[in-house]
Design a protein around this nucleic acid. Structure first.
Length: 807
DNA sequence: AACCTTGGTGTTTTT
DNA sequence: CACCAAGGTT
């Protein structure tokens, strides 16, 4: 391969140094991905076996992309490189060897919600007041301990105050519950792998010999336990290449230790260092702005990023009176750009500090009819119906997992109530068996009555599935899911308990889960070409537990992307908007008042990451007031905007002197048309709400169609709220009690137009095969497509998720 | 046992 | 404001 043609001298050096420790300091946009992929390709080219390479990436998406790119260059062998994230790598290792640590290889992986549930139960059990011992805080202490590899015993010996002693007690108890449930939380995946290696030298030796060459991307965001993991593996051959940029370290809150990258040369004295300082991504104006901002941080590795792309346009800054105005501006600006063909939709991103900011932006995009995808927020996998089905699958895989058993034992309702369940719990505890075991032998539970039969039926259904899977009766995971849903009559349950739209929504989500399983099978077959069997249920559940929000974002669609600054790491867009540039929001209140200067510096690094996502055009916006915590907050313009030299800025507001008061407000040109406003609660809470500014959403089509479930009480009174006083419309405030659709539908809400099939078309679906489009229903919030499949019969699919190809 | 209402409370960012 | 948990009602 003649690589010098494709690489600059520094990149070339980084590619060629295959032996020994190497630190690549890769500034933003400096062609890092290019270097990594060429490096791996080169290694294979000079005869290093792909089998001996381990590459750790930050997201699964990045892993997939890297594999694809290497494949494009070398054309073979890329599939036997082990490319994945820290968490997935560790999960995979643990599935093989965790029995050495006393766990069972069918362990469940608990997400944050699960951990919270465990902690709440513990507090209740020990009569501790959640106000005195906030579960969130305790869990975060536990998490930090795990990331620093501090055991409950060690923490106990540090603990001086009563509070700390209680926390150490809870830490110990929490670990016990997880162990008893045969469950691991995210931190355990890393921690236990390190423990495994330390305790079992032969296992470690095995992996050391396998992974002779190790590459870690985004090294600035590794934490102590990840460092330990890498060090253990790399210590024999020391062919460790780490790539990172200390200026882009943004995960301190989850234990990332910036010293890992700053001290790399100390830890590996023979290390070579290569600096990549030419930025190929951004215009000079954008890069200079980023450099100016980050220069305010102290204690960084000195580097000067430069670009040869020319000045480009200036950085736009606008301040608005409210966050609503801000959102409308962004939507309007995007609309104009796309219409004038200045930008393609999938080359535009809107970035924000907190997920809740996505709400108003979403409304604005809907109003301007701009197709968008929101990354993150309410995760697909945290939807009720998905969690239910997954809880079944997890129970089938791991019967010791009491948490998941509790979730589904009476869902769908099968007449097992709280009272009888309490007795089963008691019985399980007294006999030191799992809850599932107790249910299976429910007839032995004293004074339990009729519920015993129901319990036994439930447990034996689960066992039947387990046995049939073990005997290889199912060819593919989607079949397990489909049959499970039939068996427990989940569809009927949904249809009985929800109105038509909601039921459709949930059923479509379940179909989407089946599609995901089918996609997983496909991916697995590609990555394991020699495998005779498909992936196991555990492997699928693994994958599901460890997906990042960004992993699911399909960047090829003709939609703009909206996400947090954190999620945007590693991505690039031609046009970038960063909204909410306000002191108090970004940087956040806490980092401003914190006396630890690290906090504000991390926010600044986040700003740096955000700015450097932009290739050609960057727009920063701020609002003078926005609603937060139920109150209007008035924030001044972010210091990060003020740190950008004024000659780089295009702004019709003069704010160099840097206080918000001096800035004239933008006049609104977005007079509302009478349909505007806040959110209705969904039915489960059912209380009345004030809709600031107008008729409830029903008339915008955002509410689920059809009549409200509860009686709608709509009192319209003149609006007196001052927030919209600039807008000359006849505003009303409405108090309604209604069955409403929460606006939080994310993951790429669709807008009409991006569907490329019509009634009568013959289409192909990844799992259900071929079929004919019978009906396209876009009367409600989302568009549903009814399809008659040749093999699977009629199904209703949600167009937001379903990818159908017209044949 | 299931549904509805009320009240209390919390504040980034994510695997 | 929005979420969640506890208590009250059918």
């Amino acid at each position: 391969m003649n690589l010098e043609r494709f690489l600059n001298p520094e990149q070339y050096e980084a590619v060629m140094e295959t032996e020994g420790p190497l630190l690549i300091l890769a500034g933003a946009g400096s062609g890092k991905t290019r270097v990594i992929t060429y490096r791996i390709a080169h290694m294979i080219d000079i005869g290093i076996s792909p089998y001996n390479i381990l590459a750790i990436t930050f997201t699964n998406k990045a892993a997939e992309e890297m594999r694809k790119r290497v494949d494009d260059i070398v054309g073979f062998g890329a599939d036997s490189i082990w490319v994945s994230t820290f968490h997935s790598t560790c999960a995979r290792i643990l599935r093989r060897h965790i029995d050495l640590l006393g766990y069972n290889s069918d362990f469940s992986i608990y997400d944050t919600d699960d951990s919270k549930k465990v902690m709440n139960d513990l507090l209740k059990k020990h009569g501790l007041n959640p106000k005195e011992y906030p579960p969130k805080m305790i869990l975060s202490t536990i998490s930090s301990n795990k990331n620093e590899m501090v055991t409950p015993e060690e923490y106990e010996s540090f603990a001086k105050e009563d509070y700390e002693k209680k926390v150490s007690f809870l830490y110990r108890e929490y670990e016990k519950v997880l162990f008893d449930n045969n469950a691991l939380d995210f931190d355990d995946l890393l921690l236990l792998t390190v423990e495994l290696f330390k305790k079992n030298k032969d296992v470690l030796e095995n992996y050391r010999n396998r992974f002779k060459y190790i590459l870690v991307d985004e090294y600035q965001d590794t934490n102590s336990v990840q460092f330990a993991f890498v060090k253990l593996l790399a210590d024999k051959y020391k062919n460790l290449c780490v790539v990172g940029d200390d200026d882009q370290s943004i995960y301190r809150f989850r234990g990332a230790n910036i010293r890992n990258i700053l001290d790399f040369e100390k830890n590996y004295p023979t290390a070579k260092v290569v600096k990549l300082e030419q930025n190929y991504r951004s215009t000079e104006n954008i890069l200079n702005a980023a450099n100016a901002v980050i220069a305010h941080n102290i204690g960084r590795k000195e580097k000067t990023l430069w670009s040869a792309r020319g000045d480009g346009s200036k950085i736009h800054f606008r301040q608005f009176s409210s966050s609503k105005e801000e959102a409308m501006f962004v939507a309007d600006d995007i609309y104009t750009k796309v219409r004038r063909r200045d930008a393609l939709r999938n080359d535009i991103a809107v970035l924000y500090r907190t997920n809740q900011q996505s709400r108003e932006l979403e409304e604005a995009m809907l109003r301007e009819n701009i197709p968008y995808t929101i990354v993150g927020g309410t995760n697909f996998y945290s939807r009720r119906e998905i969690k239910d089905i997954l809880a079944y699958l997890k129970t089938i895989a791991n019967g010791n997992d009491n948490l998941n058993v509790e979730r589904i034992v009476n869902v769908p309702k099968r007449g097992i109530g709280e009272t009888s369940l309490g007795k089963a719990r008691m019985y399980a505890e007294n006999n030191e068996i799992s809850l599932f075991e107790a249910l299976l032998h429910a007839d032995r539970i004293p004074s339990i009555g009729k519920a015993a039969d129901k319990m036994r039926d439930f447990a034996s259904d689960i066992i039947l599935f387990r046995e049939r899977i073990a005997e290889g009766e199912f060819d593919e995971i989607p079949e397990i899911i489909s049959e499970l849903i039939d068996k427990i009559k989940y569809e009927d349950y949904i249809k009985e308990n929800e109105d038509k739209d909601d039921a459709n929504d949930r059923l479509a989500n379940i179909d989407e889960l089946i599609s995901k399983a089918a996609y997983f099978e496909e991916k697995y077959a590609q990555e394991n070409p020699e495998a005779e069997k498909g992936p196991t249920l555990q492997e699928f559940l693994n994958d599901v537990s460890l997906v990042a929000d960004i992993d699911n974002a399909d960047t090829s669609l003709d939609r703009i992307l909206m996400m947090t600054l954190h999620s945007a790491k590693g991505l690039e867009f031609s046009h970038v908007y960063i909204v909410g540039m306000e002191d108090g929001l970004f940087p956040g209140e806490r980092s401003i008042t914190s006396y630890n200067s690290e906090d504000i510096e991390e926010e600044r690094r986040l700003a740096y990451v955000g700015i450097t996502r932009a290739k050609d055009d960057l727009t920063l916006t701020a609002a003078q007031s926005r609603m937060a915590r139920g109150q209007w907050q008035n924030y001044p313009i972010s210091r990060f905007v003020r740190e950008i030299p004024s000659e780089l800025l295009d702004s019709d507001t003069k704010f160099k002197k840097s206080t918000a008061e001096e800035i004239p407000m933008q006049k609104s040109k977005y007079a509302p048309t009478g349909v505007y406003g806040g959110y209705l609660r969904n039915s489960s809470s059912g209380t009345s709400n004030t809709i600031p500014g107008g008729v409830p959403y029903a008339s915008t089509g955002l509410l689920s169609k059809g009549k409200p479930k509860a009686t709608a009480k709509v009192n319209i009174t003149p609006k007196t709220d001052s927030s919209d006083s600039k807008v000359e419309t006849n505003y009303k405030t409405a108090t309604v009690q209604a069955k409403a659709k929460p606006l939080g539908f994310t993951k790429g809400s669709d807008l009409k137009g991006s569907i490329n099939y019509k009634v009568g078309d013959r289409v192909r679906h990844i799992k259900f095969g071929e079929g004919i489009v019978k009906e396209i229903d876009d009367s409600g919030v989302n568009t549903y497509v009814k399809i008659e499949f040749d093999q699977y019969g009629q199904r209703i699919l949600d167009s937001r998720f379903t990818k159908l190809t017209v044949i």
